[in-house]
């Protein structure tokens, strides 16, 4: 039996959990520095300050897209970063959420605030049904199976034009609340921000719960976890469903915000993009997920000015970051900062 210690488990966090388990001396400073309290505070602070830098609807648009992507990625990170299960099909769940909102509001006259949870429940049920057979697979077979699910969803959406508007997509009317149309960057910025904070809060709590510890065990060594009595499948299914529901909610938000949905939302590349955001920011780090989502949402906007060189540069950045920071931006930059601090302290 080899190393049982989970790998996606930073030294920093280990210290924190140990001290909590022992019920001893978490100094106020330590509490402040922890992901749950300090990180959350920083996120809220950034969300509050960011509008000062945004001067028009387009910039709000980019910020909102960052937030919506971040919700998906925070959920997906639970699956990839903590449970160690890859999914190349989460764009499918995202698109299902978006289309559930679009179809329920336009074709059945439901209110958006009702369509979103209905969509999320539907997606959750669907994820639950497929999770058991799919999560029996591992590694690249799991990647293929989830990819297949995503592609089937994508094809179904673009073929069933009577319901979905087909490959050209469909409109979603602006959401009305008490007779007021929800339109414009600022309103949606705060709506998405609230959902993002909720998603991050949920994720952090889940990670710090006994479930989270079991999950980290999974990532480290599944067989070991199983032999020590952890019902691995149950936890994997649970996280799969949670991440699918989060993707669905984000999809609903994007449908109402952008007032337009297309089957592209379910495309293979959209799935890959979500996974890239998880890894780019740093696996098994909730704030890494947020940073990854923000960075990769902003990047194409910054690169748009390079016209035909855009894709070359994007591909190059993805490769270089992953080669030199295989753990992702946040953990790698964090390690760099720590090293420098230590050097400074020494000199």
């Amino acid at each position: 039996m080899a190393d049982i210690r989970p790998s996606g488990y930073s030294k920093h966090r280990k210290k924190q959990t140990y001290s909590r388990r022992l019920g001893t001396r978490a100094t106020p400073l330590q509490t402040l520095m922890s992901e749950r309290v300090g990180g959350m505070g920083a996120l809220i602070l950034v969300i509050l300050v960011l509008p000062l830098l945004l001067s028009n609807n387009y910039q709000y648009d980019v910020a909102i897209s960052m937030g919506i992507n971040a919700i998906v990625v925070v959920g997906l990170n639970l699956l990839i970063g903590y449970a160690g299960q890859i999914s190349l099909g989460h764009a499918g769940f995202y698109a299902l959420g978006a289309y559930a909102s679009a179809i329920l509001t336009t074709r059945y006259g439901l209110h958006g605030a009702l369509a979103m949870p209905l969509g999320a429940i539907g997606v959750g049920l669907m994820a639950y049904v497929i999770a058991r057979p799919i999560l029996r697979l591992s590694g690249h077979y799991l990647a293929m199976a989830t990819l297949g699910v995503g592609i089937i969803i994508n094809i179904a959406i673009s073929r069933e034009a009577w319901l979905t508007g087909g490959p050209d997509g469909m409109y979603v009317p602006a959401m009305q609340v008490a007779g007021v149309e929800l339109y414009g960057g600022q309103i949606w910025y705060w709506i998405v921000a609230a959902f993002l904070i909720l998603a991050v809060w949920l994720a952090l709590n889940l990670i710090d719960s006994p479930i989270g510890r079991a999950l980290r065990g999974l990532h480290g060594a599944e067989v070991a976890a199983e032999t020590s009595g952890v019902d691995t499948t149950r936890y994997k299914v649970m996280v799969f469903v949670i991440s699918a529901v989060m993707a669905s909610v984000a999809g609903s938000l994007s449908a109402h915000f952008s007032e337009f949905v297309t089957p592209d939302k379910a495309s293979f590349f959209h799935s890959i993009l979500f996974v890239t955001m998880v890894v780019f920011g740093g696996m098994a780090s909730t704030f890494g997920a947020v940073v990854g989502a923000a960075a990769l949402t902003l990047l194409p906007q910054l690169l748009a000015d390079f016209a035909s060189y855009e894709h070359m540069i994007l591909g190059l950045i993805m490769m270089v970051v992953m080669i030199f920071m295989p753990k992702g931006l946040v953990p790698s930059l964090g390690a760099l900062a720590r090293r420098r601090r230590r050097q400074e302290a020494r000199s």
Binding site: H311, M312, L314, M318
Partner: peptide, 14 residues
């Protein structure tokens, strides 16, 4: 493994 997948995806885009 996921990191390597993303490197090859990046290579493809490049």
């Amino acid at each position: 493994v996921v990191t390597l997948i993303i490197i090859t995806v990046g290579a493809g885009i490049f």
